[in-house]
């Protein structure tokens, strides 16, 4: 099944931001930028949003044994308005894709996306011939910063992804940093 048949919610190449409140800075004040990046990296509040199996591993990562709260990424916010990080944990299908896009748009910038597990990366085991429902990766819908392979990935992998994301935020290498 070729890609041109699929009509997806269109992702603009530079659609990491909503229109409002995003004026490119006239003056860049580097120390302040650094401080903000440092704060952002250390305070990643994920959106409570699980789709399938990987969501359970996401919950496990936030639970006692793995405890992402240690890195400041344990405050799960239910409202996208207060979340910084969307962890797409599970298979994205055609019915869900527009909703993911909408949730992403509802989050305030700067915002980051982790695609957790094979399904969110490329459709995983469900991306087969004659599959009519599954989107081949959430990066077709929202810009993804970190991909975490695994089916499902272990909680350690998610923690690693969060740490990696922190490094990228600090060095300005995320979709949200490139204004």
């Amino acid at each position: 099944m070729s890609d041109e048949h699929r009509s997806l919610p269109v992702m603009q190449p530079d659609s990491g931001h909503t229109d409002e409140g995003q004026i490119p800075p006239i003056v860049r004040f580097l120390p302040l930028q650094k401080a903000l990046d440092l704060a952002r990296a250390n305070s990643l509040w994920p959106l409570t949003f699980g789709i399938a199996c990987c969501a359970i591993e996401m919950m496990a990562a936030s639970a006692s044994r793995y405890d992402t709260d240690r890195f400041g990424a344990g405050v799960f916010r239910n409202s996208p308005r207060q979340a910084d990080l969307m962890i797409v944990a599970g298979t994205v299908n055609m019915k869900m894709a527009p909703i993911i896009r909408r949730l992403y748009d509802q989050m305030p910038a700067p915002k980051y996306v982790i695609a957790l597990g094979s399904c969110a990366i490329c459709g995983g085991p469900f991306d087969q011939d004659e599959n009519y429902a599954v989107v081949q990766g959430v990066d077709k819908v929202v810009p993804v910063d970190i991909f975490v392979p695994g089916c499902p990935p272990r909680p350690e992998a998610l923690i690693n992804a969060i740490l990696e994301l922190q490094e990228r935020i600090k060095s300005g290498q995320t979709h949200s940093s490139r204004v």
Partner: peptide, 17 residues
């Protein structure tokens, strides 16, 4: 410093109306 980071981050977030 966790909550300080949270506070600074919240200051730097987009204000959506």
């Amino acid at each position: 410093l966790q909550t300080l980071a949270d506070a600074v981050k919240l200051m730097g977030k987009e204000l959506i109306t």
